[in-house]
């Protein structure tokens, strides 16, 4: 079990010594039980950091935002930035490093292991506590205890843990400068790609029937894209592919620019958007599950992403987020890549 005070002490120490200019972490949420991301810049603020099963957010996104801030304001960093990172956050950082988004020495990773837990799925919790929004949650090694207006309630770990945490094999952030908690790499709560395998048992017609409903529902709010640390492009290819907007660009020219995908949220455009996104995340998605968590219309986006992840692993022996130095999935090949599908 991790003592949250260790995380706070580390953060305070790093800030006090000037070894980092800020520490990205989680603090208690302003509404309900869920923690929220925060950036701590002063040593005395370090005690506001928390670590509990509601630290859903993949903080690598804050790292991306910090990088964008620096680039856009043309500032150079005075010192590295610290970040509290659980297993999936750290894997996302590894992919960002693999893609040279920043340098390893620009980041100080304070790793936190999920050990034998993971994060909660709020939807699952709500179903168990009869609609009372919990205000706090903790994990005791087997069960989650949540506080609600009706008092405390113990919930079995497996029942309310996020699906991706149940399938997670790497709850420990291997890439770290310092880490807390036990390395439980290889733990197995649920078969890997279990949900994927269940879905794939459907026939083609049933699969399309399912996805058609999902694509029809999408409102193209782009929350999935906004929350994803891998979607760090300033301009997404689905918005525009060719045109550079300059001061002299007219409104008509902007309107006429070619987009791969039309703005309107209709099935064909939504389907193309989600499939493009899945392909662009192939070999890069670390299955942090944030896209699925933030989707306001409950599209099971993890299915698309884990499908690509399993192909990467099984067809190409590629382990997303495992090493900083290796080539990216689609920029490389092996002589014996599968090719039976080609005539």
């Amino acid at each position: 079990m991790i003592n949250v005070q260790d995380i706070r002490d580390t953060a305070r120490d790093l800030l006090a010594k000037g070894e980092v200019r800020a520490v990205i972490g989680w603090r208690a949420g302003s509404r309900g039980m869920a923690a929220e991301p925060c950036v701590v810049t002063k040593p005395e603020e370090a005690d506001s950091l928390v670590w509990d099963p509601t630290c859903y957010h993949n903080l690598a996104l804050q790292l991306v935002n910090d990088r964008k801030d620096l680039v856009h304001s043309k500032k150079t960093a005075t010192a590295p930035i610290g970040i509290v990172a659980k297993g999936c956050d750290a894997r996302a950082i590894v992919v960002l490093l693999q893609e040279h988004y920043f340098k390893r020495e620009d980041v100080y990773i304070i790793g936190v292991s999920c050990e034998n837990s993971g994060v909660l799925d709020e939807r699952k919790v709500k179903a168990q506590v009869g609609g009372f929004a919990p205000s706090a949650a903790a994990f005791d090694g087997d069960n989650f205890s949540v506080k609600t207006a009706k008092g405390d309630k113990k919930l079995a770990g497996r029942e309310v843990m996020a699906d991706r945490c149940l399938e997670c094999r790497t709850p420990f952030p291997k890439e770290n400068n310092t880490a807390f908690g036990d390395d439980k790499t290889g733990r197995e709560f649920d078969a890997q790609f279990a949900a994927l395998a269940r879905f794939e048992a459907n026939d083609e017609a049933a699969r399309w029937e399912f996805w058609q409903r999902q694509f029809d529902r999408c409102i193209r709010c782009f929350a999935c894209r906004s929350v994803c640390p891998m979607c760090f492009c300033d301009e997404c290819v689905v918005d525009s592919i060719e045109m550079k907007i300059a001061p002299e660009t007219t409104a008509e020219e902007k309107a006429n620019r070619i987009r791969w995908i039309e703005r309107s949220a209709v099935r064909s455009e939504n389907a193309t958007y989600h499939m493009t996104r899945a392909l662009h995340l192939a070999g890069r998605c670390v299955d942090c599950g944030e896209c699925e968590r933030v989707c306001p219309v409950n599209i099971p986006l993890r299915l698309l992403n884990t499908k690509m992840e399993r192909e990467a692993r099984e067809a190409f022996g590629f382990d997303p987020g495992a090493s900083i130095g290796g080539p990216s999935l689609v920029a490389s090949f092996r002589d014996d890549d599968p090719g039976e599908f080609i005539r």
């Binding site: 040279h100 760090f232 492009c233 080539p327 990216s328 920029a331 490389s332």
Partner: peptide, 26 residues
């Protein structure tokens, strides 16, 4: 290269069969 859109991820560098691409200032 469209500099405005390049993030310097080096995927093109890896993919190029001719070693014709390198990174300069990201």
């Amino acid at each position: 290269v469209r500099n405005s859109h390049c993030t310097g991820c080096e995927m093109c560098v890896t993919a190029c069969p001719y070693d014709a691409i390198h990174l300069e200032n990201g």
